[in-house]
Design a protein around this nucleic acid. Structure first.
Length: 188
DNA sequence: GACAGATGAAGGA
DNA sequence: TCCTTCATCTGTC
């Protein structure tokens, strides 16, 4: 039986992101759905959160309901919001919330850990990422792991490009990839 | 076990 | 250059 998830939103100048927390940390981060082809990993779970602020609740109402959220998750959410806004501003976040990768494969976690080491404003190719995790021939599998990344932006899959600086793909939509790279001062 | 995929490299036109 | 083909590796069903 899985623990319930808590869904909270983060308003940014790029739209309202939706963060989902488990008892272990940030488990998912979804792109704003309005006007974008995103709905990133919006899979429904049977045990959807009992405490959700992802609706159109007023700010006042949201603030009141936020008090129902455990203190640990409030702290994680604060860290997530700060980190997200730092990245969107093109800066390197000073603090990350704990990330919950429960149920993911070791290969995927290795790829994502390697992505976390890519500094803001820098890029790597899928081939370089494959080298970084010690599997130089697994560049295609790295692409698959990027696509399975449940926490985009914070886990910077947008900084991974195909060879020759080609844009490659992005599960949240290539528009987002372009925008995120542009915010970090990268032009293709 | 078969198939698909956000790749990369090589070869040919 | 651009396109096609093939090799490679992993995840999913």
């Amino acid at each position: 039986m899985d623990a319930p998830f808590v869904t909270l939103t983060i308003s940014t100048d790029a739209g309202r992101f939706v963060a989902r927390y488990s008892e272990k940390g940030l488990a998912e981060l979804n792109f704003p759905s309005v006007g974008r082809a995103s709905s990133f990993h919006g899979r429904r779970r049977g045990n959807e959160s009992q405490i959700s602020l992802a609706s159109s609740a007023s700010v006042k109402d949201s603030s009141r309901r936020l008090l129902q959220v455990p203190a640990s998750i409030r702290n994680w959410h604060q860290a997530t919001e700060t980190a997200l806004k730092s990245i969107l501003a093109g800066h390197s976040p000073k603090k990350f919330p704990p990330l919950d990768w429960t149920g993911k494969t070791e290969f995927q976690k290795a790829v994502w850990r390697a992505m976390l080491k890519i500094p803001v404003g820098r890029m790597k190719s899928y081939g370089e990422m494959a080298h970084a995790i010690g599997r130089p021939k697994a560049m295609r599998a790295v692409g698959g792991a990027c696509g399975a990344n449940p926490i985009p932006v914070l886990v910077p899959c947008h900084r991974v490009l195909a060879a020759n600086r080609k844009i490659g793909g992005f599960s949240g939509g290539l528009n987002w990839k372009h925008e995120l790279l542009a915010r970090e001062g990268i032009s293709l």
